[in-house]
């Protein structure tokens, strides 16, 4: 286990180093001079040179890259050209909304997805099953921005219950959370169903049935407990992806989260924020994936990492 962990961490470091190269490359290929953008129209040559020097953009690219990675190693994600805040401060300010959004939608999707998936598997090939399969596919196929607009149309325009956009506490996160949960619930229900169907065919399920275990107990204790492992992986990965920013949903509901920060900073050519944010997201994504992998062996002691 320890050796596995060390190996995984080393490969994670390699990937993150690769990500820094990718980000650095992308950001420096972005057309448009950020200095020109900052100084507005008709800046003097001296002003341009001064700002270039101040931001360190007059240095050769490899020095800039080394400085970027060097600062990252000290936990410094850079400083925004536009706001003057550190990227870390920007992230800390925006993260709570994204985190709440990811959490609520994953909880909602998990509850719906697992319950519906189990019912669907137990009632395989009945109309209940077909309905579940159909609606989970609808959830996966519908564009998130469309679900969002649909919900806004019904619950903000037709029945003015929820705010149309902006953040004003838990209440304003309900519609965005439902939006995100629809697709996730579809995925989780499908995975739960197919995993449960595999488990139901096992000998120990027949044994449990033969010895007269109550039906519900059998499904939950012997069935779901064994079927849930791949589902947990999926939930973990989806949570990681949502933490990385629900870009579209945040944009539709005008929520100030990480996703909208990404869109805004690209629009403003705020290179340090783009660099720092994308790295932070990749880091978060990688860490959640690692944790999910490790949880695997905790849920299923048969899995041993060597």
């Amino acid at each position: 286990m320890q050796r596995y962990l060390i190996r995984r961490l080393l490969s994670l470091l390699g990937t993150l180093l690769g990500v820094t190269i990718l980000i650095f490359l992308l950001v420096h290929l972005i057309p448009g001079d950020p200095v020109q953008y900052l100084l507005g129209e008709h800046p003097t040559d001296e002003a341009i040179a001064a700002l270039n020097a101040q931001l360190g953009l007059d240095r050769p690219w490899y020095v800039q890259y080394a400085s970027f990675v060097g600062k990252l190693l000290q936990g410094d994600l850079g400083t925004s050209y536009i706001t003057g805040y550190t990227v870390w401060q920007e992230i800390v300010e925006r993260f709570p909304i994204t985190f709440q959004l990811a959490l609520y939608s994953v909880i909602l999707a998990t509850v719906i997805g697992i319950v519906v998936g189990v019912i669907s598997a137990v009632k395989q090939n009945t109309w209940v099953d077909r309905l579940v399969v159909f609606f989970s596919l609808i959830g996966i196929s519908a564009p998130g921005f469309w679900i969002a607009l649909f919900l806004i149309w019904i619950f903000a325009y037709k029945l003015p219950i929820f705010p149309i956009s902006g953040y004003d506490g838990f209440f304003s996160l309900i519609l965005p959370s439902i939006t995100l949960a629809m697709g996730e619930a579809g995925l989780i229900a499908r995975m739960t169903r197919s995993s449960m169907l595999d488990v139901i065919k096992q000998d120990y399920m027949r044994t449990a049935q033969a010895k007269g275990a109550p039906h519900l107990w059998m499904i939950l204790r012997h069935g779901l407990q064994n079927a849930v492992i791949p589902v947990i992986t999926l939930i973990g990965l989806e949570f990681g992806a949502l933490l990385a920013g629900a870009i579209v949903t945040e944009t539709v509901f005008s929520l100030q989260g990480l996703g909208s920060l990404a869109i805004e900073s690209i629009g403003k050519r705020d290179l340090p924020t783009i660099q720092g944010l994308v790295f932070f997201v990749a880091f978060l994504f990688a860490i959640t994936n690692l944790i999910v992998d490790l949880l695997y062996s905790w849920f299923d002691p048969r899995i041993k990492y060597e």
Binding site: S11, G14, T15, L16, G18, V19, I21, L22, I23, L26, L29, I30, P31, A241, A244, G245, I247, V248, A262, I263, I266, I274, V278, V281, A282, F285, A286
Partner: peptide, 24 residues
Amino acid sequence: MQVMDILLALPALLLAIAIIAVLG
């Protein structure tokens, strides 16, 4: 596979948005 791992380290939509930031 190393290059693919790096591309997979970012959520697909964010990667696509970053690429569009470069290409316009």
